[in-house]
Design a protein around this nucleic acid. Structure first.
Length: 159
DNA sequence: GCCAACGTTGGC
DNA sequence: GCCAACGTTGGC
């Protein structure tokens, strides 16, 4: 029984961890730690699976937008940074026997050199209902539909 | 740096 | 269970 591949958008502040950091990381892979929102947690724990496609989104930078593509290489597992008092993402309420927070591992696929800006995404009528272009949308891990994925993968910005 | 939008907390 | 206060996110 094969599962249908799903697609996601994950936000990262590039001054914390950028698509180039991912490209240069060991095995070009990182754990997606530090998510502390329950809706995003549920996606990481239950829905995001190895092989799923990821739009790597740069937030809090000029300009904001999609900076590259990644792929999920490990299903959800407990976010151990929540257990470490020295970690910025430490959460004393997360019990290792019943973890509150989860993460997946993602691997670099390609960077989009000049990026696909949010402004550009908003200009495409095919992406009108995409979550990322909605006003006030703060969720750091978002589902992307297959149709939206196809539109974005077909943009000339990928080179 | 500002601030609108949103999620969480905690008093009641 | 409500909701005001608070803290955070993230576009601008």
């Amino acid at each position: 029984m094969t599962r249908v591949r799903r697609f996601w958008l994950m936000k990262s502040e590039p001054n914390v961890f950028s698509i180039d950091d991912l490209r240069r990381a060991a095995r070009q892979t990182t754990c997606w730690d530090g998510v502390r929102n329950y809706q995003a947690r549920n996606f990481l724990r239950d829905d995001i699976k190895t092989g799923d496609g990821v739009l790597y989104y740069h937030s809090n930078v000029e300009p904001v937008g999609i900076a590259g593509e990644a792929v999920v290489v490990r299903d959800g597992y407990p976010d151990y940074t929540a257990f470490d008092p020295d970690d910025v993402h430490y959460d004393p309420k997360s019990d290792p026997r019943k973890p509150s927070w989860y993460m997946v591992d993602v691997k670099f696929v390609r960077a989009c050199e000049d990026g696909i800006t949010l402004k550009r995404l908003k200009s495409l009528s095919a992406l009108r209902s995409m979550l990322a272009v909605q006003r006030g949308q703060r969720l750091s891990v978002q589902p992307v539909t297959a149709a939206e994925w196809r539109v974005i993968m077909g943009l000339p910005e990928w080179g």
